[in-house]
Each structure stands twice: as C-alpha cells, then as structure tokens.
Nucleic acid binder design. Structure first.
Length: 568
DNA sequence: GCCGTTTTCGGCCCGACTGTTTTCAGTCG
C-alpha cells in the first residue's frame, strides 16, 4: 500500500467517526496523522520496516498499529467496524457544499436520508426545513449544491485521470498484436477535468480481432456491452471506452477519439462536402492514413494541435494559420508561490529549496500566507522579517541558487491588503489572493480584485476566481475588466497549477496573451510533491496557448525581480 | 488519538460567515 492510500483510509475513518458522533478530536487526530504520513519523504514499507511510524509527529501507538494493518491486509479492525455502522450514501452527502458531518448525521438519524437521491426527494417534499437547525435557506443551498454535483457527475480531476490512464497503459501495451496504446478525449486535449478514458488500441496488420478478444477478457475491467466499442469501468471508478483499429485507419480514428465533439463535427461537414466519410462506422478511402496530419492534409486543412481542438471554429484551411508554441515544462526556470512550515506548508525553506535545486531549477519564490489567514497560521510582520533573515542566510549558502522573498497576501473584503505598503515593499514579489468573503456579486468581486491590482506593491493576482474544480465554482469575475485592469497596471495573473484549481481558466489565456498580461505557472505547493503540480499547469496552458515569453516562470530570477520592481 | 509535561490529563488552528434562533451551532478556509 502507498502512503497516499493509507492516508486516504485514515481520512475515511475520521469521516466515519464524525458521522457516528464520536469525539471530534479523535477524528481530527486521524486526519492529522493522514496529512503527516503523506508528507513523509520515505515510502510506507521503509517507515514500517525501520519501525519509524511512531516517530512521525501526529502518529502515536494507535494510529501506527492501524497503518501497519492497512499495509499488511488493506484495512484495520476499527475501520471495518465503523463502516458497518454508517450507510455508504451518508458519506456521499458530505459532497454537498454547506453540508458537513453534523447536518449529515441529523439527516440520516432524524429524516432517514441516506443517499443524494433521498436528499433531493426530501428537499422537494419540504421535509428538510422542518428539521431542527435547518431552514428554507439551508434547503435552497443544498438544492444548488446538488445541481452542481449533478453537473460534475462522472468527471475526474486531471491528475487522477492521468494516473488511471498510465496504469491502464501498462496493462495493455505488452498485449500480443498491440502496436500502440493511444489515449484521446479530454485527457489528450489537456482539459482540467476528464470524463471517460477514451482508449484506442492500434493493432498490428490483421490482428484487430485477436486484440479485441484479449481486451474483452481482461479481468480488472467490468465490460458492460459488446459492439465495435468496448465500454467498461475500472475499479477506480473511471469509465473506459475502448476501440481497436487497424494501422491504416489510425489517423482518422485518433482524430475521432480525441474530439472535441464540435471539432469533429466541423471536420465531418468538410469531409462530407468533399465526398469523404469520417465516421466511427467507417472511414472513407481517401482518409485511410496512419497519421492525423495526413487526414487533415487530405481535407485541405491545417493540422490542429490536440489542446486547441475545442469548439466548432477550431478548423482552418491549410496554410491559413500558424499556432504559437505553448510553454514547455523544460522551459520553466523558477518555482513561484509555495508555502513553508511558517504558514500552512509541510516543509521548511531549506527542504523546499533542496528539492527545487535537485530538479535543476534556478530559483524558488516562497509566498506564505499573511496575518489575517489565521487558519493557515499566517505570518505577522515580525515573523515576515524573521523569514527574510533566514532567506538571506540560506541564499548566502546556496548561491547561485536563489530564494525569492514573497508573500501571498490576503485581499481584504474591500480590496485593501492584509499588510501595509511599507512591509510589502520589502518583498521581492507579492501575490495577492482572496481567501474569505466568497459571497460577492460579479461587480463587487471584480472591483475588489482590481483595487488590489492597483496597489503598486502587488505583482501577481493569485487564483483569480477561487474555484475548486468539481467542488465549487468560486466567485463570478468579469474577466475582460480584470484583464484590462492587469494590462493597465502592468500586473500578472497566475495560473494556479494545483490540479484542484487550475485557475486562471484556460479560456482566458488567449485574452491574457493578446493584452500582454503575463501568466506565471504557480504550483501553490504546500509540500514537496506539490511543487511538481506545475506539470498540470503546463498541460492546460497549451490550450491558450500560453507562450514561454509571456510566462514569468520561464524568466531568470533577475528578469522576474526586475519586472516586479518596474511597476512598484 | 496525540502531545507535552508542573508525568497523568487538559487542550487540540481560529475567526468569519451564515442561518437559525433569540444566543449559538455548523461549515469553511
């Protein structure tokens, strides 16, 4: 078992404890232990073999025993017992925004609501608002939350989809007769969330039927129907659509498997106009080709990079268009915006710097929280100055590597900042973000963000909408006004690379590019593994595309600091 | 359950916000 899997089991147990009304501090102890376990540099086998679990802060005798059981047999006695006591649908209720363990427990015990469907029925029947502590507004809030869940149903975070696809690829690639395992769909197009995994197996000449037979007998997939497409579901919950094709149809089949629906429809119309067919049921002779490039060329069209195949107007005549090169991972020179143990991060400055140096980066931009972010142990001005001293000492030791002094300063409800200008002037760079007061109108939110950008000390706007993918929408923002404001004040807007955020939304990258608003790729890392989240940002940025020139993460430390000073 | 310690049990991140209730509980970041 991996650390992450064990941590997930501990968290699951903590949730169950809360639902059965156990001591909330006991539940929190398991949550803390899960978090601490995840941030250990060693893997679980090593920690257990060397008997070092209990040495981890937050893991005592009891949790250590649970972890050892998890590793050896996949569960522990208390977890199994707690599972028996809570209907699985009750845990689902917690996914509704504003519905926590206490309300879930009331719904379960007082109204026999044990599933999302039952919750919906209870709301519509007017039963919810009669429960103690519930009212009409609570019911309405749950109604909205349920609608959001429905709209995201069957979709997954990109990082989970990539992990599931990589594992599926391992199972398929060595199968007899398989030439290539190809993943299409929103995974290939670089989207921030992914629904089904669209798999295309390109078989060796004459092997398609044999491959299909082998695939259909795979034991780890539950196939639901036959036909020319195999539909199945992985244990991880991912739905898979898999088809097998001969090499001479691979080009067209890859295009069909990649989508988007609108892009494919536009291609099909052009193909039909020329008397060709480009259809899952059959590919016209002219479009029989091994590569996608050949198919676009046969249709008289420019080749469209997969991340740009969105919308019906993403098809262009051959020679009519060149695409800007998107920023690549190996062009990133510095990591901006991450948190240390001084606020809510899990690693020290020194540990983060060592990890970033090991990966070959030139600088690390630390940006801990500011004082009003009490939940995150935000820094007071005194603690900021102490951190600056520590950075100066480390920089003396680590040169030519450089740690940049930054902050993620809270934007207060009225758009002012959580530190005064004098302190802000002492940082190399300032990220300003909203962490509270999410219930604003679009007008108020836009004005709040613009006021923050107008402060000369601010360099970068952090996660501009506050959205959490598949969890909440964030506040509404007028992106055109915001982008105009950033352009006028000479500021940047981050693309937060956390796979749960990916905020700025890629739809606005072209606007940023057009208005010359720089977009740094910021991991917003709270532990070392999170530093590499920058990968998801790079993949999504290809959809703009965001160019290297417009991405401060590709600049040298000197260039970046000079740019920050230029508008102060 | 874990931690720290005045070594045996009390405290555990903490403040804003919301909705319900009429003084506070629950959720969230």
């Amino acid at each position: 078992m991996t650390k992450q899997e064990a941590a997930a089991a501990l968290r699951h147990y903590a949730v169950l404890l809360e639902l059965v009304g156990e001591d909330p501090f006991r539940a929190r102890a398991f949550e803390n232990a899960a978090r601490m376990l995840e941030t250990q540099p060693e893997n679980l086998d090593v920690l257990i073999a060397e008997n070092r679990l209990s040495a981890v802060r937050g893991i005592g005798k009891g949790v250590a025993a649970a972890i050892r059981d998890l590793n050896s047999r996949g569960t522990f006695a208390e977890l199994e017992e707690a599972r028996q006591g809570v209907p699985s649908g009750v845990i689902e209720l917690l996914r509704v925004e504003g519905l926590g363990p206490k309300k879930a427990r009331t719904l379960w015990k007082d109204a026999q609501v044990t599933s999302l469907a039952a919750l919906e029925n209870a709301i519509e029947a007017g039963l919810i608002e009669r429960l103690p502590g519930f009212g009409a507004k609570t019911a309405q809030k749950f109604r909205v939350g349920l609608a959001f869940l429905k709209s995201t149903s069957g979709r997954h975070w990109r990082h989970h989809a990539v992990r599931a696809a990589e594992s599926l690829r391992e199972s398929l690639k060595d199968m007899a007769g398989v030439r290539e395992v190809f993943f299409g769909g929103s995974l290939r197009r670089g989207n921030e969330t992914v629904g089904d995994l669209d798999v295309l197996l390109i078989a060796e000449e004459g092997q398609a039927n044999a491959v299909r037979t082998q695939v259909a007998s795979l034991s780890f997939v539950r196939w639901s129907e036959a036909g020319h497409i195999l539909r199945g579901e992985l244990a991880s919950g991912f739905r898979v659509e898999l088809s097998v094709t001969a090499p001479d149809e691979a080009g067209a089949r890859k295009i069909l498997a990649t989508g988007s629906k609108e892009h494919v429809r536009a291609l099909q119309e052009i193909a039909a106009g020329k008397g060709y067919t480009l259809d899952p049921q059959g590919v016209g002779n002219v479009l029989r080709a091994g590569s996608e490039e050949q198919v676009y060329a046969a249709l008289g069209l420019a080749y469209v990079p997969p991340p740009l195949r969105e919308g019906s107007n993403s098809v262009f005549e051959a020679g009519s268009r060149t695409y800007p090169e998107p920023v690549r991972l190996n062009q990133i020179r510095g990591i901006l915006h991450c948190h240390t143990t001084a606020s809510d991060g899990h690693h020290s400055l020194r540990e983060l710097a060592a990890a970033v140096i090991e990966r070959g980066y030139e600088y690390l931009g630390v940006a801990d929280h500011s004082q009003s972010a009490a939940y995150a142990h935000g820094l007071t001005p005194e603690r900021v100055r102490a951190q600056w001293k520590e950075i100066d000492e480390l920089n003396g030791e680590l040169t030519p590597f450089r740690i940049l002094k930054g902050t993620e300063v809270d934007i207060l409800p009225d758009g002012r900042l959580d530190f005064d200008d004098e302190l802000l002037a002492g940082f190399d760079f300032v990220v300003a973000s909203v962490h509270s007061g999410f219930n604003m109108s679009e007008e108020d939110a836009t004005a709040r963000l613009c006021r923050a950008l107008e402060n000369p000390q601010v360099d970068i706007l952090g996660h501009p909408t506050g959205r959490l993918l598949l969890e909440r929408n964030g506040y509404a923002v007028n992106h055109t006004k915001l982008m105009d404001c950033a352009a006028r004040t000479g500021k940047a807007i981050e693309l937060n690379c956390s796979p749960h955020r990916l905020d700025l939304d890629w739809h606005y990258l072209a606007l940023a590019e057009a208005k010359r608003v720089p977009v740094p790729l910021c991991p917003d890392a709270h532990h070392i593994e999170g530093l590499w989240d920058i990968r998801w940002g790079v993949e999504v940025a290809a959809k703009g595309p965001l160019t290297a020139a417009n991405c401060p993460s590709t600049w040298s430390a000197d260039e970046f600091v000079r740019w920050c000073a230029s508008h102060a």
